[in-house]
């Protein structure tokens, strides 16, 4: 078998692969066009300009009303997703690092608590945990009239958590609070669920990173007279971070993708709003395309960052 026939074979394989891929794509596309015509469903992104006609439960940065367009509604969904993802990442990192360090502590009780936490959170599906937290927040919390008030101006009830802002303070009027800023039960449940779930995975990453640092490093530091906290801070953690960062960013990405489960508990994130829009306009393909494009952009950006990190900050 000469090299020529080998090369020809490879070209043939690749040509076949392209042909199959194009063939399948053409099959799908032509069927879709036919089906859409048959069902009289519009196509294209023109619907983004039309009036949405539905309310959105909460919005973090943008003003929105039912008269606004679908496009604006989707934008609100996007900001809601980013809001819960960013806050969730911060909380999960803090909690996860603490638990990861706790798993390595000398104290037996601390180690066991942390290990039990990690085992439990990792072996129960996130959706179950979200439903659980949602049940806790709606069933377990008292009504507005009997709301808990751990701090002045802050009220915990089954209608949400109310905070005072700089301009207004929540006050009980009738059956609910008015004024201040509110974290809906949906947001609270989603945030707590995402943060506690992802923290368990981050804890394992932190633990593995610290264990990956050679024992001799700690010994050399101790032999030089450095204390335990100093050794951890100056010698172990900097080396552990290099092992921790790649899988950590992967978890951040997972948290962002997992926030899409918001649709199951009624938090108006991007997927949830896109779903409503798809149901109202029937334009499912455009809706799903938007969802996938957004998440793909987020994950490819994070991948790009990871590649940059590996190339520039890897051990010299």
């Amino acid at each position: 078998m000469g090299r020529h026939s080998g090369k020809a074979k490879r070209l043939a394989y690749q040509a076949a692969a392209i042909a199959v891929a194009l063939g399948v794509a053409w099959f799908f596309v032509s069927n879709t066009i036919a089906n859409l015509e048959e069902r009289k469903i519009a196509s294209g992104f023109g619907f983004l300009g039309r009036e949405a006609g539905f309310e959105i439960g909460e919005s973090f940065f943008l003003r929105y009303g039912a008269a606004d367009s679908y496009g604006r509604a989707l934008l609100v969904g996007l900001t809601n997703t980013l809001a819960v993802a960013l806050i969730g990442i911060v909380l999960a990192t803090c909690l996860g690092t603490a638990i990861g360090l706790a798993r390595l502590a000398r104290n037996f009780l601390l180690r066991s608590f942390a290990a039990a936490y990690v085992e439990f959170m990792r072996n129960v599906p996130l959706l179950v945990q979200l439903f659980f937290w949602y049940a806790v927040v709606t069933e377990g919390m008292p009504g507005p009239r009997e709301a808990l008030s751990p701090l002045p101006g802050v009220f915990l009830s089954n209608r949400g958590i109310f905070f005072p802002t700089l301009s207004s303070v929540p006050e009980l009027q009738g059956f609910n609070f008015v004024g201040g800023m509110v974290l809906t039960p949906e947001f609270a449940a989603l945030l707590i669920g995402l943060a506690t779930y992802t923290a368990a995975f981050i804890a394992e990453i932190v633990r593995a990173g610290i264990l990956a640092v050679d024992r001799g490093q700690g010994e050399a530091a101790h032999a030089l007279g450095l204390s335990r906290p100093q050794t951890t801070r100056l010698v172990v953690l900097p080396q552990a971070l290099r092992v921790i960062v790649p899988p950590m960013t992967s978890q951040y990405l997972n948290l962002t993708k997992n926030s899409s489960l918001a649709v199951a508990i009624g938090y108006p994130d991007l997927v949830s709003i896109a779903n409503t829009s798809m149901n109202q306009t029937g334009q499912a393909i455009e809706g799903i395309a938007i969802i996938m494009a957004v998440y793909l952009t987020i994950s490819l950006s994070i991948s790009a960052f990871m590649n940059w990190y590996n190339a520039h900050v890897a051990f010299k």
Binding site: A220, A221, Q239
Partner: peptide
């Protein structure tokens, strides 16, 4: 103390 595997801080 000086160790067999040096244990210098690589970072």
């Amino acid at each position: 103390m000086v160790f067999q595997s040096f244990n210098l801080f690589p970072h």
